[in-house]
């Protein structure tokens, strides 16, 4: 019996492992509930300058840095061809671009040829399209889901983050006013 016990002692300890693992998981669950609900996604990057980058341009593969970003306030839109909601968002972006507002695209974890085909077939709203194949820059930006859109002012500071596709209503009532105020600041300066 004694020998039996010594053999099974480590095994008996192992029986506690599922419980311990689960308690760890519970901690994460409860902790994550403490964060505010997902609709208003706080970004630690708000009011910080856009992280530095050097990324290839989609069509030309030429390397671009933050110096190549538009001079005025603009939208940074994270998109991918595998992303279903991006399709819903696309016509809205086309309209925004038609109004003369610069949009910079960040093609996220995608295939270059598919991305180019997409833009050729349904229209290209982007003034500049950066490629983030591995998603590194996305991590710098705090990209949680695709699509995501950032409002960035002329000083290259991130002013607002929108998660999920932009609907026309959201554009009209949420983002456009903020963008207008950013442009307004510029004019005052």
């Amino acid at each position: 019996m004694a020998a039996d016990k010594s053999v099974f002692a480590p095994l008996r300890m192992a029986l506690w492992l599922p419980l311990i693992a689960f308690i760890g998981l519970c901690v994460v669950f409860f902790a994550s509930l403490k964060f505010s609900p997902r609709t208003e996604l706080p970004s630690p990057l708000i009011d910080r300058p856009i992280p530095t980058f050097s990324l290839p341009e989609l069509r030309t593969a030429a390397v671009r840095t933050s110096a190549d970003l538009p001079e005025e306030a603009f939208l940074l839109n994270v998109w991918a061809t595998w992303c279903f909601p991006c399709r819903e968002e696309h016509p809205v972006l086309m309209d925004i671009a038609a109004d003369g507002i610069p949009i910079v695209g960040l093609n996220y974890k995608d295939d270059d040829s598919k991305a180019i085909e997409w833009l050729n077939s349904i229209g290209d709203p982007y003034r500049l399209n950066l490629v983030d194949r591995e998603g590194d820059f996305g991590i710098d930006l705090g990209v949680y889901g695709v699509p995501a859109t950032y409002l960035i002012d002329s000083a290259r500071t991130i002013r607002y983050k929108h998660i999920g596709p932009i609907s026309r209503v959201q554009w009209r009532e949420e983002l456009a006013p903020i963008l207008r105020s950013l442009q307004g600041n510029d004019e005052q300066v």
Partner: peptide
Amino acid sequence: LYPLFYEWFTDGGRVSLGPP
């Protein structure tokens, strides 16, 4: 659950893992 853990350890950072 990776996004959850990530958020937890980076104090609010967010990522997502795609199908690949």
